[in-house]
Design a protein around this nucleic acid. Sequence first.
DNA 1: CTGTTAGCGCATTCAG
DNA 2: CTGAATGCGCTAACAG
Lengths: 336, 336
Amino acid sequence: MKTTIADIAREAGVSKATVSRVLNESLDGVGIETRLRVKGIMEERRYEPCGIARGLATGKTRSVGLIVPDIADPFFPLLIRGIEAALGSHGYGLFLCDAHLDPKKEREHLRMLAEKRVDGVILNSTLSDSDGPWDTLDQRAIPYVLLDRMVEAPASAYGVFADNRLGARMATELLLTRGRRLAFINGPAGLSISKLRKQGVEEALGAHGLTWEAVRMANGDYSMESGERALETLWEPGALGFDAVFAANDRMAIGAMRALQRRGLLVPDDVEVVGFDDIETARLVEPPLTTVAQPAFEMGRQAAQMLLDLISGNPPSQQTIVLEPTLVIRKTTRQT
Amino acid sequence: MKTTIADIAREAGVSKATVSRVLNESLDGVGIETRLRVKGIMEERRYEPCGIARGLATGKTRSVGLIVPDIADPFFPLLIRGIEAALGSHGYGLFLCDAHLDPKKEREHLRMLAEKRVDGVILNSTLSDSDGPWDTLDQRAIPYVLLDRMVEAPASAYGVFADNRLGARMATELLLTRGRRLAFINGPAGLSISKLRKQGVEEALGAHGLTWEAVRMANGDYSMESGERALETLWEPGALGFDAVFAANDRMAIGAMRALQRRGLLVPDDVEVVGFDDIETARLVEPPLTTVAQPAFEMGRQAAQMLLDLISGNPPSQQTIVLEPTLVIRKTTRQT
DNA sequence: CTGTTAGCGCATTCAG
DNA sequence: CTGAATGCGCTAACAG
């Protein structure tokens, strides 16, 4: 039998209430000497408070959920690190849920988290589904913050994002200043993150007096394979339709590079390539990939901090935090 | 206020016990028609059982913890997928804990998990610490299964591992059949996983009538940078001390390749390289890395299944499951 | 087949 | 400053 506050109370010759009080440091309605005595006994007995019982009594479980679309995406490790950094030693636990690109699974996970009575969830949603996940959350009044993907949630939703429009614009500008003809491999069409990136590309186009007619576009699902396929799709036998590729993430960019190289094209000499994310592999491929870096760690940290604020009842100062991406120029683009 | 079984009971005109019974399908001591009525009400009211209360009442939380040494290691996504696959829709939640290579942090996580009263934990421990983590677990009688790293736990501990000895032996054999002089970049010396791999190398050496005198050895910490450093260490100015490198994981192998290439050496022409793990990046670097593949998904799945068995009181048939690695030959070794 | 009665371990009034 | 009582939401005997 694990020792409970009742055991401690008995041995210390005090009531359970008193033990409970020293457990929750904050309320200091306890005499210094009884407090010390109780603490001593706790030590000896190696007492460990029961989170479950506390949860039931207080309504707070000190655990949060994280939903990611695809744990295999190398973008997440840093994100998770950031989240853990913010959750820190506050004693919070993090439930990891991999939706595996399946909205149905995502909803199951959400149900599970709700049953577990998590204090909040960080939602890096798989899809901007019409019957979205947030109402599952809103209905149960459980706080959540959107991360990375700006789904079409209620205007009241909190979120942390990278400036995807700006990132896409920077990448496109880089390519267009060399007078390149662009191929754009975007993410799934449904994602608002994709729309934003498309806008960014459009802005850069406009700045150069160009329109969409000048660019070839395809959609991938962020996997390397989809990047390869997208490139094949865009390809026109005979005519070289483009000589610059901007992909919505590094994995697709790498896929595109592979497809290019298979066809005997040289990167960056024949075709320049720019990715998005700056995953670890980006600097390991040959040639090293020029890409738009997202501040993944910081995004995770801020999102978790925001959630913590939400949970503790201090509404965050801003409803939306937008972090700036940075251009990391390596070898898949030519030096000017 | 969330609806509780009391609400359902009142509305259905039955007792809480009855509602509880239909909630726990198994015990079917409920008339078919009352059961249906109660279920109906639950639907309408969108009732959602409170995991916390159940946990307190049953002593089971339906959540488990996973401790990993370094979430950034690309080896984990698949492992996690495997775990989630086994945990499946049993309603289990998975607490992810990244020890970040810090045993102290690992212990904090363990304490947190204990407080949260997880039903069990999967332990991919950072270090084979003398004052190891398992006693934290054993003391509290919480079931755990060791994963991947065969720490020096009590003989009674359960675990799932890859056959590291065999894997190392296969890699070394591959290199030695070409008469190569070997450099071996092992993992941290303290890990028993490192000792096993060393044994594997030794076996291969023996089979070729060689001893350790013929090989140069260094230890890394599984990061790419440490692979680069290890290679520098092994290097002897002037004399080419070796022409084959076996690294204990792919990241270090890739680091070694980079160091080699920086020195103008050709892989595999001048030096052959073999890694371990078969992470996604392995096939993306140039040249694609020959490596020993671990069945990560399967390891995760089996470990979780084992833990589930342990939790439900059916002691697994085997105490230790050893999975076979496979050699994936790509381009950093020469075709025979 | 169903209701009653006790807890599970702790927090939180309200008294004293 | 401290204790006694009550309840969080559900399960688990034990009766009927």
